[in-house]
Simulated assay, not measured.
Amino acid sequence: MGNRGPGSTLESVDLGFRGDVVEFYQRYRRGYPDAAVDAVVAEFGLGADDVVVDLGCGTGQLTVPFARRVRAAVGVDPEPDMLAAARRAADAANVNWVLGADTDVPALGLLLGTVGAVTIGQALHWMDHERLFRAVHPLVRPGGGVAVFTNGTPLWLQDTGWSRALRAFMEQYLGTRLTLTCGADEHTQQRYADALGEHFTVRRHLVEYEDDLDVEHIVGGVLSALPVDKLPSDRAAFTVALRDILQPHAPFTERVDVRILTGRR
């Protein structure tokens, strides 16, 4: 539920996304709608000759959908446990999983040559985006580019009764206020767009939909966002307590705004 400090990267920040967190991440992290992936495919003209690199890939929620649309995809993540889970779950044979961080982009260029696109799904807030955009420019082919996905507002920051109840519960549990949006707020989106515009032609895309959640998915989504050392020791009791807090606010309808910034070379 945190954010990166100035100058931090996936390589230099211990996100705590390992161990039991990976199971929650793989099971409960929301995937990306086809319309969002297809918007990027169309923007860059991606096809059977292209390779896509997905930075901060986690367990492959974005890597695998792109792999189905191109020649090959490369998922890059600094957490070995994430990559191990991605390998077990992937249903696409044309995916390679690489241990690495955003700082490894120049080395990837030496290995891969030019690629059709570099994607970042709900992970750019952990990276030095200005340095990354500079490094990516020579890696992508003309007409290709960078796509930054923000997969909705965090569960605990939405404008609903159940989300406000969740936020109060988690702030008490963690002993801190929860205000960081993981890049979903307009101010941060504009910062990304401005930095991207230094090297690429920028466009914004939006895919909107509503989803109905249950308590299991809300709890799982929360646990997938906690570092491993912050996971509750008694998860059954944690779930019961959170269910009691949430239940008066049912149904749990979520508006999901998938925002995509594309930078075309």
Rank of each mutant, 00 (worst) to 15 (best):
M1L: 12
G2T: 04
N3L: 05
N3G: 08
N3P: 00
G7S: 12
E11M: 06
E11A: 14
G16F: 02
R18F: 01
G19L: 00
V21A: 00
V22N: 02
A36H: 11
A39R: 09
V40E: 05
E43F: 01
G47R: 01
D49K: 04
D50E: 11
D54V: 15
G58S: 03
L62T: 05
R71I: 05
A72C: 04
A73R: 06
G75E: 10
M82H: 07
L83G: 06
A89F: 09
V95D: 13
V98P: 00
L99Q: 11
A101M: 05
D102I: 11
T103A: 07
D104S: 08
A107F: 06
L110V: 09
L110H: 06
L112S: 13
A117E: 08
T119Q: 03
H125K: 04
E130K: 14
E130T: 02
G143E: 09
G143K: 04
G144Q: 05
F149C: 06
N151L: 14
N151H: 13
G152I: 03
G152L: 07
P154F: 05
L155K: 06
L155H: 08
W156K: 04
Q158C: 09
G161K: 02
W162K: 01
S163E: 08
R164W: 13
F169S: 11
M170F: 12
Q172I: 09
Y173C: 03
Y173V: 07
T176G: 02
R177L: 14
L178S: 14
T179C: 12
L180P: 01
Q189T: 11
A193M: 09
G197K: 08
G197T: 06
T201L: 08
R203I: 02
H205Y: 11
L206V: 14
L206M: 13
Y209K: 01
D211E: 15
I218L: 15
L226K: 07
V228H: 01
D229V: 02
S233G: 08
S233D: 12
V240C: 11
V240Q: 13
R243S: 15
R243M: 08
D244P: 12
L246V: 00
P248R: 14
P248T: 15
H249P: 02
H249Y: 12
A250G: 13
P251T: 00
E254Y: 03
V258M: 12
R264L: 01
R265E: 07
R265V: 14
